[in-house]
């Protein structure tokens, strides 16, 4: 074993301070190799004392990425990791800016309080009406009448009447389990009046109107309102078996009016 071979083997050792017995024999008797071994041992000791630089920010993620790409058996909770990092950043941000954020929150609080307690002169009186007397169906019917007063075309009249019929039908179904037979009969009567005397009558007028609206548009309009009446009939029919007999009579009246109206609107 010559000196070059021994020195190369010393360099290849994991720790040159720990010379194996096979090399010890030569190193102890060769001054050059002994000096080489001492230098290698000293170098190893110095390297161990060198400060370790911090890893780059993305190094851990990159390393995890490499591991994942090798399809490990257990996948890391990536979203949790991101959330944890985000939460950690947020905490750090909040900790650093507590005073500013508290000030901002207090300012928002004061602004909101001032806004809330400032009287608004343009507030509409309707907002102040207590819910105790506000009956949505009445409000809808009054608004329907307002619209009918100004309705200057058959399509507009049809639209308003169809909406009023829908509102009454929905309310009648809603009251079917609690209102008396008489009350429901009245509601069904309102529906019947709007459908028979209003919608159907306007539909006939629309068909007779020779100019203004193309035939295809007339058909499309009437079909859309017929479909709404059909839906009213279907929903009412579904409810029939679930209500008391006296309510059933009123609902049947509404059902018949819806079916008749549907036929008229479809020109059947």
């Amino acid at each position: 074993m010559n000196c070059q071979t021994v020195q190369n083997q010393i360099l290849a050792l994991p720790d040159p301070r720990d010379i194996p017995a096979a090399l010890q024999q030569h190193v102890l008797h060769c001054a050059a190799c002994h000096a080489w071994a001492q230098q290698a041992a000293r170098l190893e000791a110095l390297v161990a004392q060198l400060p370790v630089p911090p890893a780059p920010g993305q190094k851990k993620d990159a390393l995890l990425g490499e591991l994942i790409s090798a399809e490990p058996l257990i996948q890391p909770p990536a979203r949790l990791t991101a959330l944890y990092r985000s939460a950690s950043d947020s905490r750090r941000f909040l900790r650093r800016n507590t005073m500013y954020l508290s000030g901002l929150a207090a300012a928002i609080l004061v602004a909101v309080a001032v806004y809330s307690f400032t009287p608004r002169p343009h507030r509409h009186q309707h907002d102040e009406v207590t819910q105790a007397e506000d009956y949505p169906l009445l409000r809808k019917i009054v608004h329907g009448n307002t619209a009918l007063a100004r309705a200057d075309s058959l399509p507009r009249k049809l639209e308003v009447l169809a909406q009023m019929a829908d509102d009454i039908a929905a309310d009648t179904r809603g009251m079917a389990r609690i209102a008396s037979g008489d009350e429901l009969r009245d509601m069904a009567g309102w529906y019947e009046k709007i459908v028979k005397d209003g919608l159907a009558s306007q539909a006939r007028e629309l068909r007779k109107q020779p100019v203004g609206i193309p035939e295809a548009e007339k058909t499309r309009l009437l079909e859309s309102y017929a479909a709404r009446l059909q839906a009213d009939a279907r929903m009412t029919e579904q409810l029939l078996q679930e209500v008391p007999p006296e309510s059933q009579r009123a609902l049947r009246r509404l059902l018949e009016a819806a079916r008749e109206g549907e036929k008229t609107l479809r020109g059947q």
Binding site: L138, I141, L148, V160, L161, M164, I178, D186, M187, G198
Partner: peptide
């Protein structure tokens, strides 16, 4: 139910006049 009873007659009139307007 209370509001229906209170407004029954009024709504009936409004429906009739609305249809007549149409």
């Amino acid at each position: 139910l209370r509001l229906l009873r209170a407004n029954r007659s009024l709504i009936g009139n409004l429906v009739s006049e609305g249809v007549e307007m149409a």
